[in-house]
Simulated assay, not measured.
Amino acid sequence: MLRACLFFEARAYRHGGGFGRFERQDFVLALVARIRALSGGHVPVRGTVA
């Protein structure tokens, strides 16, 4: 769910004109930090087997 939220945030940023630095927005930083915390810092590529 967090990755989907990040995807839609990126899409809204892109279609909204893309002003500023996307990777430095507070909400984006918080999403990425939470994704890293939940995944242990590694998110496998979809469709791969660990």
Rank of each mutant, 00 (worst) to 15 (best):
31 L>S: 04
45 V>W: 09
17 G>N: 11
33 A>L: 04
4 A>D: 09
13 Y>P: 00
40 G>Y: 01
5 C>P: 02
3 R>P: 01
48 T>I: 00
10 A>I: 00
20 G>L: 03
4 A>R: 07
47 G>F: 01
41 G>H: 02
31 L>V: 04
37 A>G: 05
5 C>K: 14
33 A>I: 03
27 F>A: 13
50 A>G: 08
27 F>S: 11
21 R>G: 08
28 V>D: 04
42 H>A: 15
14 R>M: 12
48 T>Y: 01
4 A>W: 06
30 A>M: 05
12 A>H: 15
49 V>M: 07
37 A>I: 00
31 L>F: 06
3 R>Q: 08
17 G>P: 03
5 C>M: 13
49 V>W: 04
39 S>A: 13
37 A>C: 05
35 I>E: 05
34 R>Q: 14
38 L>K: 10
20 G>S: 12
43 V>P: 05
15 H>W: 12
11 R>D: 11
15 H>L: 15
15 H>E: 15
38 L>P: 01
9 E>G: 07
42 H>I: 09
38 L>N: 11
23 E>L: 04
33 A>N: 14
3 R>W: 02
24 R>F: 04
21 R>K: 10
19 F>H: 13
10 A>L: 07
22 F>T: 02
29 L>Y: 03
22 F>C: 03
17 G>Y: 04
47 G>M: 00
5 C>V: 14
19 F>L: 14
8 F>K: 09
43 V>R: 03
48 T>W: 02
46 R>C: 09
29 L>P: 01
8 F>W: 11
16 G>N: 05
30 A>I: 00
30 A>P: 00
44 P>I: 02
25 Q>P: 00
28 V>Q: 04
36 R>W: 02
7 F>H: 13
26 D>K: 09
8 F>G: 06
1 M>G: 13
43 V>Q: 04
37 A>L: 08
14 R>Y: 14
42 H>M: 11
43 V>Y: 05
27 F>E: 11
46 R>V: 09
39 S>Q: 02
2 L>Q: 06
15 H>T: 15
20 G>I: 01
22 F>L: 08
36 R>T: 04
41 G>L: 00
46 R>Q: 12
6 L>P: 05
38 L>A: 11
12 A>R: 15
26 D>V: 10
21 R>W: 02
